[in-house]
Design a protein around this nucleic acid. Sequence first.
DNA 1: CTTGACTCCGTACTTAGATACGGACTGTAA
DNA 2: TTACAGTCCGTATCTAAGTACGGAGTCAAG
Lengths: 147, 147
Amino acid sequence: MGRLKSGELAKQAGVNVETLRFYERKGLLPEPPRRESGYREYPEESVRLIRFIKRAQELGFSLGEIQELLALRVRPGTTCAEVRGRTGRKLADVRQKIADLKAIERALTKLAASCSGRGPVNHCPILENLDGELSSGPKSPRDRGRT
Amino acid sequence: MGRLKSGELAKQAGVNVETLRFYERKGLLPEPPRRESGYREYPEESVRLIRFIKRAQELGFSLGEIQELLALRVRPGTTCAEVRGRTGRKLADVRQKIADLKAIERALTKLAASCSGRGPVNHCPILENLDGELSSGPKSPRDRGRT
DNA sequence: CTTGACTCCGTACTTAGATACGGACTGTAA
DNA sequence: TTACAGTCCGTATCTAAGTACGGAGTCAAG
């Protein structure tokens, strides 16, 4: 076994069947082989792929960015510099996200701690505690709205 | 200084003027005082607020979730347990995101390193290197689609 | 006191991402 | 061998998040 029909893959990955077709059209999900009838037969690892896509979305990546992430690899005709370049840009992005999330984490931790403390906090502590910590201001123009 | 008109706030925060009205309608941005004419006058800290919202979006939070984050605070009538509860749930969410991003970071780092290595990598290394590391599978049904 | 940029508001449109619909075909278990 | 769930495809619809439009009022520099 190891071949999945659309419905099986969808169920295992926790998405709607239509979403699979949608991803396929978008080029995120490679076109799977078909049987005679035209039915798709997905390899089992597609489950991982779909789950990765869904999770990456929850981490703030657009489908376009996810596609770029998935396309990263060292291929025959590619120079070392190129791979490093493409990878490096993503890496910087990811690291900034981690840093910003950590700032939020600190703020939340502080808030939970301040709870057993004295006075009520009535301003917004998330914002207060993040003061100056979040990378605020798009360094590089975000490319979320490409066609 | 200190009071901003819509256009000024929008420019400083890097968003469209209409977006401010949109956030106001959604309750994300508190209604600012108006002058006689009806013109809005934002306090300077609104810049921080808007930037936080934008950044939080890039970290994968929906406007609804951001609203919840911003609403977190210790208020007079609130029990300690309640604050801890609400904060704790967000905290778990944030920490999971950090962990998942770190997994991606590791994969990218490894990819960059494998570059100067021997053979060309032709399968997708992002997915490979993430094997089993990403929290794949929504523990709690995500609530991104609320009204 | 006019002119051009800015603001107001309600409503309509757009884009990304996903879901639904409907009619025809397929797979399989009773 | 029929019934019924699953699949196919194209197209249409939906939601979240924003953007744009248009007509009326406002502000400030000349």
